[in-house]
C-alpha cells in the first residue's frame, strides 16, 4: 500500500433501530481483514469503532462514520447531530454514564466506552457542542 492514496469508506449509522447498532463496525472489520492488516490493529480499531457506533445510536440518534486507511494508520471519524457532551472530561471517566435503565438491560451503559476507546487508540479527539452534536476522531497506528 506504500505511496497509495488512503482508502476511504463512508457509513450511515441508523439511530432508530438498536438491533442494527454495530453493523458499520462489522463491515469495517471485514474490509480491514480483506486488506490484510495486522490482526491486533484490526481488533483495536474494531473495539474503538464499535464503542463509538453504539454511543452514537444510544446517546445521539445515529450519525455517520468515515474510515480512512493509509499505510501508517487507520483513522475513524464519527460524527453525529445529537445532544452533544457538556463536560467531556466527566464523560471520559470510567463509570460515568447517562444511559437510561432500558439501555442497561440491553447490555450497555456502564460508562466504560469512552475510556475504552482511549485505551485502544493511539490518538483520540472529541469535539462536541451542546445542542449541535459530537465529532470523535480517533486513529490506530499500523
Amino acid at each position: 500500500m506504500d505511496n497509495a492514496a488512503p482508502l476511504e469508506f463512508h457509513f450511515n449509522v441508523d439511530g432508530k433501530d438498536f438491533t442494527s447498532a454495530g453493523e458499520a463496525s462489522v463491515e469495517v472489520k471485514k474490509i480491514l481483514r480483506r486488506i490484510g492488516l495486522d490482526s491486533e490493529a484490526i481488533r483495536r480499531v474494531s473495539i474503538a469503532m464499535y464503542e463509538a457506533e453504539i454511543n452514537m445510536v444510544i446517546h445521539a440518534g445515529g450519525g455517520e462514520a468515515d474510515v480512512s486507511v493509509s499505510p501508517d494508520k487507520i483513522t475513524l471519524v464519527m460524527t453525529d447531530h445529537g445532544p452533544g457532551i457538556a463536560d467531556i472530561e466527566l464523560a471520559m471517566r470510567e463509570g460515568y454514564s447517562t444511559a437510561p435503565d432500558n439501555i442497561r438491560s440491553l447490555g450497555f451503559g456502564a460508562g466504560m466506552g469512552l475510556p475504552n476507546i482511549k485505551r485502544y487508540t493511539d490518538e483520540l479527539k472529541i469535539e462536541s457542542e451542546v445542542g449541535k452534536g459530537t465529532k470523535i476522531t480517533m486513529s490506530v497506528n499500523i
Binding site: G22, L106, G107, A110, G111, M112, G113
Partner: peptide
C-alpha cells in the same frame, strides 16, 4: 450480561457465556 464490561475488561478470551440475547 453487560457487553460494556466485556468490551472494557476482557482480553484474549475465546468463550463468552451470557444470559443476554440481542444482536449486540
Amino acid at each position: 450480561d453487560m457487553m460494556s464490561d466485556v468490551l472494557a475488561f476482557v482480553k484474549d478470551q475465546a468463550v463468552l457465556l451470557t444470559g443476554l440475547v440481542n444482536p449486540q
